[in-house]
Design a protein around this nucleic acid. Sequence first.
DNA 1: GTTTCGTAAATTTTT
DNA 2: TTTACGAAAC
Length: 760
Amino acid sequence: MIDTPAPELERALNPAQQEAVDHVHGPMLVLAGAGSGKTRVLTTRIARLIDRHGVPPDRIFAVTFTNKAAGEMKHRIGRLLARDPSGLWIGTFHSLSARLLRREAPRLGFGSQFTIYDEDDRLGLIRRLMDQRGHSTKLFPPRAVQAVISSAKNRMTPPSELAAAAGPFDRLVQVSADVYAAMGPALKAANAMDFDDLLLHPLTLFAEHPDRLQYYQNKFSFVLVDEFQDTNRAQYQLIRLLGAHGNVCVVGDDDQSIYGWRGADVRNMQDFLKDFPSARLVRLEENYRSTQVVLDAANGVIAENTGRLGKTLTTRRGGGEAVTLLAAADERDEAEWVVRELERRSAAGDWRYEDMAVLYRTNAQSRALEEAFRRAGIPYRLIGSISFYERREVKDLLAYLRLLTNPADDEAFLRAVGVPRRGLGETSLAILERTAVQWHKPLLATAAGAEAIAELRPNVREAFRALAAFIEGLAGRIRDKPPAEVLEEVIRAIDYEAVLHAEGPEGADRWENVRELVASAANWSEVVAEGAEGTPLERFLAEAALLSSADSVVGREDGVTLMTLHTAKGLEWPVVVLTGLEQGLFPLARAEEQPDGLEEERRLCYVGLTRAKDKLYLTWARARRRGGELRPGMASRFLRALPAAILDERRTTSLWAPDWRSAGRAQRRSGESAFARGDRAGPRRVESAPAGQPEEASQDAPRYVKGERVRHRRFGSGTIQGLTGTGRDLKVSVAFDDAEVGVKQLLVAYAGLEREWESA
DNA sequence: GTTTCGTAAATTTTT
DNA sequence: TTTACGAAAC
């Protein structure tokens, strides 16, 4: 392998890193380029604070982007200190806020055992509120309403302001504002908070109880924030308040801001310098991760963005293996090529599977990759996609646990009431809900008094009463029992195994997941959830609610890593494969329509490229299945931003591929396809520019796909309807735009078709 | 009230 | 290709 730098611990800090570590008191903004060792700066700084400056760990408030990152950072600090930094407040904004709120909830009118509502719970609540308030869920999709409300919350806009801002004809926003206004009280009644509330409630607390703000300002004498470019306004406010004493260190990279759609606002970086005028600005511009070739690729892409703060990344790792650019026929072809290539490199002893990652824009793309890995028998691990805690069977059981700790949790009640089937359907529940509203009681409490509801049939009353009695009885018995035991008890009581097995073959898989849940709960109990308050069950639930998708790992540890580009932020591998580089997919079509959308996609691409230490593969497919339909695509515009000198272009053997560089340009010089032959042997090292002479065009027959736009010399433009035959007998049926011509069957070998976008 | 079957719709990223 | 929802049957 290529000049790998010395292990991190042995390398001395560079002057800029040293400066960031040495600066103890007063605000500081660290502009840290990709791979510039910012994690190391943060961990070293925290360790120093503790052992050289005698700061007690519980007076340090350190924010990371994922729980996993927090765990790793804590581990590294422990290694530096040679002891466990117990008491340290380190975690995501959401988990740290939740921890703070457990103590302060009563001051805000919540119980300290409040539930954290996930996306589904919140959606369910919105649906019910819409029903109650007579808003049609057909005209206004609850998802859309939820999106409006969430974005208002992220901008810290209260319901009244949202209502005022809604135009007279903007019914969606009007409805959303109405639901939003009702949602606060409803959540409070259910003793629940959603993800956004976790960030907003601390701000409310500090506004209403200045003494509490003062307390936490005094308590946390040092505040540190990683991935600062991805904080939203509420998060920034929290930092500004807690760090008012000035000992605030934020670390970020404006080029890696990729969560704008979630309310993140890069302006926080500029505002920080305004709000803390004495802030020291430190730039980490030396990259220790990647080869020059990788940086050239990344710089080529990001250079097209405007309004950057400006950074120049350098590396001492000159040269490097060229970036392999692959054109495939479709997503399956792409996946198979990737798997074969990684297998080849592994067999050649170049890298191990665990040193490789395959990244993609959307979770849906993981399917084809997974299948290819499985077919080839190559180990892989899939991160994210469907979180374990989002599975139906897991949520069903957790609903019972939630109800045990928080009897007001109506969403949990509505889930539990249907598992197992109790003969309680839509009508009975509607009556129960109506009564609950009248009585001003949670559903569980209302169910306990169901005997008094005359509208209900006697057997329904009894069913409600029995369910309530069951929960209450269980709640009395469990107390401080470990979560795994409580789970077992619930499973036994509702005979969940039988319930699942009655569902047929799928039920067996689900039962497996249930066993896994119990096992993970048992395993969890052994770890001391440090610092948190409440019973073990409460802490288990709190943690489960805040687990991120990055925490869900399926597959073998020693395998190739598969994840989305978003999840890959902050990580690195010797080999990185970026797939699906097509217009419409990456960058996403939707993103390109929004003002800053394309720039954010470009930053996402930059994040992906800079994950690689030694070797980059970039792939795209001429066609891709989207919703069952095979759709043609063209190479991503990001590919055109790459310097030609560092590229090694290839195609899969069966593919006739056009010169993607000329796509969309005025003219194309014939015979100048930039694609090399697919069978070219061995990697190529790039020492310096220029390389990559134009190669011979492929001699394979052109390959068309259904839906593709083509042009015929006589008939004009049309769309391919279908394909029949193979080789020289390959026929296409084309529906021409000219209605007079209609649909024609043409032999590809003679028709002389051109792709429309190529012949422009 | 529950199950089953059919049709329609849909696919961005995540704490 | 898979999921979600609605209608009709059971």
